[in-house]
Design a protein around this nucleic acid. Structure first.
Ligand SMILES: [Mn+2]
Ligand SMILES: [Mn+2]
Ligand SMILES: [Mn+2]
Ligand SMILES: [Mn+2]
Lengths: 224, 224
DNA sequence: ACTATTTTTTAGACATGACTAAATATTTTA
DNA sequence: TAAAATATTTAGTCATGTCTAAAAAATAGT
């Protein structure tokens, strides 16, 4: 309901993401790191957001979203992921190109726009990176398991369902290797000395993947 | 090329529109009026834009866009009109609902986005109000004649090709009366005492239109 | 040509969001 | 548990974009 600045919205969104990982209060430095800002700037903004009752903020103890703050954060994430989906599905963007533009588009303020877009895209459940898209009411259908490729045992067959979108170069690499969502992978061999693995892709070709790669890919187990 | 604030972009756009009407320098007060800001704010901003060589500004004499300023203004207008077209054509917005959202979308900074959108829309020549959409190179195909409905003689048959988008209520009225782009009109009678007219719409029904309405509709003559 | 009116600029202020450097709290380590 | 290291806040500054009120310039009216 409130009218927030782009900056305020980015803070809420980032607090939501960090809370999801640790479920503890989010620390000032952690936020500073993610938002590419100085800790002092974070303190200032947390005060403002606390005044607006969008976060609970305790000096030296970090912050946490209020219900209202979380509601808003989820709506911004909804917009972000719907726009990313639009860019890939309708405008033929690559999955490594969409995040930057979505960072801008997520701040457009029009409920009618986003609901129309949702309809136009036929109510997609996941964005191009496999992250769930909150619905109009803010509900998020998380995947039942959060299995990472790095934790999969040898000889298991799995399907790629999500990749961490944070690294542009990872996305480019995966695209180039044709390791997109839906790709079926079998773990052929594990190399403990550097945590890399050898995999078979779509039952066809074998390739090696480094630890850095496989810890950023989420999969689901395929039963034989 | 430069990175401009939303505010700076809005100034450039408005200077462009006002220049198109008067082709004289644009006055501080005229801008203040259109931008809903005080004259002193305009002076401040014109100084800044002059520093960036986007306008030529002469104290007490008003301003005018430089070539670079005009280039940027046209690109913003291109974005605005393409987004309006997208909203109507793809998301089923009414023509009276699009301007407000386009005011936000026009500031999204991504050349790839706007060129993809242009392609997706199949390179439209006109926006939902009949205004020409500049192409990628900034070229604008203006209509050959700028005939307004108010200047059309009795018994002439004309087609609506453009409406002034500035008034929400006018757009709603025209929509409701089914006076949309492409509608064919014949002037049946003119009433000099209030400059209103009686017209026949699509050869079917007769209605009366006030001066306020007919001075905001542009038409093209249909030869018999 | 002088005065009145209108337009525009200047001066000074405020809100926002960010920064640096210094001070203070908290946590870690020995 | 006391010093060292780390994390966080405070104090003071800056840039941006806006405003009000007062001063100055341009224009209009007699
Ligand atoms: Mn993203
Ligand atoms: Mn994503
Ligand atoms: Mn418009
Ligand atoms: Mn328009």
């Amino acid at each position: 309901m409130e009218n927030l600045s782009h900056s305020e919205e980015n803070y809420l969104k980032e607090i939501f993401h960090l809370s999801a990982q640790s479920n503890d209060r989010v620390s000032t430095n952690h936020l500073a790191d993610r938002l590419n800002a100085k800790a002092s700037s974070i303190t200032d903004m947390l005060r403002k957001l606390a005044d607006k009752e969008l976060v609970s903020y305790i000096k030296y103890k970090g912050c946490r979203l209020t219900d209202e703050g979380e509601r808003i954060a989820v709506q911004i994430i909804r917009k972000h992921r719907l726009w990313e989906t639009f860019l890939v599905k309708k405008l033929s963007f690559g999955w490594e190109e969409v995040h930057e533009v979505a960072e801008q588009l997520e701040h457009i303020d029009s409920e009618k726009l986003i609901d129309s877009l949702d309809h136009f895209l036929d109510y997609p459940k996941f964005d191009p990176h496999g992250d769930p898209i909150p619905n109009k009411d803010g509900q998020i259908e998380y995947r039942s398991s959060k299995l990472k490729l790095i934790d999969v045992g040898i000889k298991s067959r799995v399907e790629i369902v999500r990749v961490n979108e944070d690294s542009l170069s990872l996305l480019k690499f995966l695209e180039q290797q044709e390791l997109t969502l839906g790709t079926v992978i079998e773990i052929m061999e594990k190399f403990p000395f550097d945590d890399s693995v050898r995999i078979k892709v779509n039952g066809e070709r074998n390739i090696n993947l480094s630890k850095k790669v496989i810890e950023n890919i989420s999969v689901k187990l395929l039963d034989e």
